[in-house]
Design a protein around this nucleic acid. Structure first.
Lengths: 156, 156
DNA sequence: TATAATTAGTTGACATATGGACAATCTAGG
DNA sequence: CCTAGATTGTCCATATGTCAACTAATTATA
């Protein structure tokens, strides 16, 4: 049994700071990607597909991007409308498509990626690499804890 | 001029980890708040109002919650439908409402808050407080950098 | 004081996100 | 082989979020 005082302590504040920082980063990325007229979510789809010459099914996309499969439908629809990706029929499993980049889509990602990496460097600025590593370790550890906590919420 | 190699380095990975951790936390909070049948965004509205006996205008809410004023309209609509908050007319400025908690709304936040603080403690677990502070400092510094970077994107 | 600029809130169009229900298809067990 | 269960993708309802255009009201200024 915990003896928590149940007050707004530094650990609560830390979680809020994490959410704020992440939101600022996401908003910044929205402005960044708007130069190429795509959204961060759309970029993420293209970015995971670029390493997959065989493509991915929508379920695989939904797992990699951590979103519901029903959301992938619309995302893929809009990217297909813009000819950046293509749904290919899969003879092995007629339920599932294989979603692949079009040549246009591949060119777009490969144009954006260097700017993206460069932006990441700029954002960290003079932040020491050692500090960055510590931060990542902290975030990874926290991530695990959050997953464990979610699991305890799930069980009734 | 930077001499960046423009490759997927540790600093790019660090930003991705930040976004992943934050998303996990947000999703976890969605499950957490569903016990009281509200969303994280709705809770945030109630949570900022709890310290404001005079209430806040919707513009003030949008600034505190870092969202567009048009989004506040719907959020406030739904919370008002559920009688958790109330729009009060403001004689000093007939354009703006003062959004205040109802007694019901106040009771709800005050019931949730202790559980929320307790959850924050649980999520950190045995994470040393010193490490938490370092992490927060890193996040604050990063936040500033992101804002600066956004500003450079904004200027054409 | 008349009017120009700004501010607060709503609305509509759209993108992103979840969850439930559904049809088509695949897979396993009897 | 055949049916029961699982999987894949879509569609609907709904919530959250942006942005642009609009009205009403306030403030600043010529």
């Amino acid at each position: 049994m915990s003896k928590s005082k149940a007050s707004a302590g530094p650990r609560y504040q830390a979680l809020l700071q994490l959410l704020r920082t992440s939101e600022a980063l996401w908003n910044s990325s929205r402005i960044f990607f708007s130069k190429w007229d795509i959204s961060p979510s759309q970029f993420n789809v293209l970015n995971v597909l670029v390493e997959q010459p065989e493509g991915l099914t929508q379920i695989e996309l939904s797992r990699l991007l951590i979103m519901h499969r029903s959301n992938v439908t619309g995302l893929v629809d809009r990217l297909e409308d813009r000819k950046l990706i293509q749904r290919k029929d899969n003879p092995n499993d007629r339920r599932a498509y294989r979603v692949v980049l079009t040549p246009t889509g591949r060119k777009l990602v490969e144009k954006i990626l260097p700017a993206y990496y460069e932006a990441a460097e700029q954002i960290w600025g003079d932040f020491p690499v050692k500090k960055t590593k510590e931060l990542v370790e902290g975030l990874e550890r926290l991530s695990e804890n959050v997953e464990k906590f979610s699991a305890t919420l799930g069980e009734k």
